[in-house]
Amino acid sequence: MKIGIVGISGSGKTTIFNALTGSVAEVSAYQKGKKDPNMAVVRVPDSRLDRLSSMYNPKKTTYAQVQYVDIGGTVSAREGMESSMDELLKLLHPVDALVHVIRNFYRSGEPPRPQEDLDTLESELIFTDLIILEKKIDRLEKEITKARKGNTGELELLKKAREIMERGEALRGYPEIAQSPILKGYAFLSAKPCIVVLNTGDEVELATTELQIPNAIILVELKGRLEMELAQLPPEEAELFREDIGLKEPATFRLIKESYQLLGLISLFTVGKDEVRAWPIRQGIPAQQAAGAIHSDMEKGFIRMEVTAYDDLIALGNEAAVAKAGKKRLEG
């Protein structure tokens, strides 16, 4: 799972990146002209995987992973910024979801304007998609009219997408279009699942800021600077501080949980003496596609999969007891 972190300049994107990954990236680097993104991979914490590992005692335990990409600057295709926009699009197109960081703290005496910043960022994503959309519609219309080639179904979907975005709405609110296989290759930014992180300062109380969130977006509020400092402490020390201030879990735990929910992901566990491993898969997919998450060859040559529910294994104690109770099942 790959997640891109975006936001208006000065919103605290790199602070949130550090809070989520435990990194120590320079928080003002982009304002000093740095263009390269910050990237880090973190493992997905899962107590179930820990329990399975203790049961099977494998040579290796492998957690699912999330890669965070901290994108510098502001996403914008306006005012001659096309060259830098091309660089940003190369970074953002492959991501599975976006984290919009919204400033909710005073900066150089300037008060926070979270609603205005959220609306601005959303508009910029839509505007960027429209630029790409208009070029493709124009090209397709010429191909269909003059050369009598081109996909008319694709053109029709693109025009529907344009109507939505011209109303100022993001495509993510229209999954039948946003998730259409025909348009998948475009990787429209406004179609990507999105979590808004309200980056609240120490001077602002949590849960006191009103924010109107667009449809199909999840809101998470964090005290970014505090979470960044905690993420850079030794785990035991950070846990004590969290207990003192009433934080139940690290920021990265909360964001990963929300990301899994947003993307409709669950974990498939494979177990054995060599390795116990967690694989993120889409909830509800057929067993054959789930096998493909492990290896593409398994999907191609798939026959069936023997499946045990985690709760049944824990309740009954071992695989033999699960089989005896008739709880094992074959999928495929």
Results as ranks from 00 to 15, higher is better:
residue 172 R to N: 11
residue 222 L to Q: 02
residue 112 P to G: 02
residue 297 D to E: 13
residue 37 P to W: 12
residue 112 P to M: 02
residue 196 V to K: 04
residue 123 S to K: 00
residue 92 L to H: 00
residue 293 A to L: 13
residue 77 A to D: 02
residue 203 E to C: 03
residue 54 S to P: 14
residue 228 M to F: 14
residue 97 A to T: 02
residue 123 S to Q: 02
residue 147 A to M: 12
residue 196 V to I: 14
residue 19 A to C: 03
residue 204 V to G: 03
residue 205 E to M: 07
residue 75 V to Q: 00
residue 57 N to I: 11
residue 199 N to R: 03
residue 162 R to C: 14
residue 331 E to H: 03
residue 188 F to C: 08
residue 246 G to L: 05
residue 283 Q to H: 08
residue 288 Q to F: 07
residue 118 L to S: 02
residue 127 F to E: 00
residue 32 K to S: 14
residue 240 L to H: 00
residue 139 R to V: 03
residue 184 K to T: 08
residue 206 L to F: 13
residue 24 V to H: 10
residue 165 M to W: 08
residue 193 P to F: 07
residue 329 R to M: 14
residue 332 G to S: 06
residue 91 L to G: 01
residue 76 S to E: 06
residue 22 G to A: 09
residue 78 R to H: 07
residue 216 A to Q: 03
residue 289 Q to L: 09
residue 217 I to A: 04
residue 256 I to T: 05
residue 104 N to D: 09
residue 162 R to W: 13
residue 62 T to W: 13
residue 208 T to H: 04
residue 49 L to K: 09
residue 35 K to Q: 11
residue 79 E to D: 10
residue 156 E to G: 05
residue 96 D to L: 10
residue 122 E to D: 09
residue 70 D to R: 01
residue 233 L to C: 11
residue 127 F to Q: 00
residue 139 R to Q: 11
residue 220 V to K: 01
residue 152 T to A: 13
residue 159 K to I: 15
residue 23 S to K: 06
residue 274 D to L: 14
residue 321 A to W: 12
residue 90 K to H: 05
residue 9 S to F: 13
residue 63 Y to T: 08
residue 156 E to L: 14
residue 32 K to Q: 15
residue 69 V to E: 11
residue 276 V to W: 15
residue 211 L to Y: 07
residue 173 G to Y: 13
residue 292 G to I: 06
residue 71 I to M: 10
residue 178 A to P: 00
residue 22 G to I: 10
residue 207 A to K: 04
residue 162 R to H: 12
residue 242 R to V: 12
residue 94 P to H: 03
residue 267 S to I: 13
residue 76 S to H: 01
residue 331 E to D: 03
residue 261 Q to M: 12
residue 146 K to H: 14
residue 156 E to V: 07
residue 286 P to H: 02
residue 97 A to Y: 09
residue 234 P to I: 13
residue 177 I to T: 04
residue 52 L to C: 11
residue 207 A to W: 15
residue 311 D to Q: 03
residue 149 K to T: 00
residue 187 A to M: 08
residue 158 L to K: 04
residue 294 I to M: 12
residue 225 R to A: 09
residue 77 A to R: 00
residue 238 A to M: 09
residue 222 L to A: 01
residue 81 M to P: 07
residue 232 Q to V: 11
residue 325 A to T: 00
residue 125 L to S: 01
residue 66 V to F: 15
residue 283 Q to M: 10
residue 252 T to C: 12
residue 96 D to E: 14
residue 54 S to Y: 13
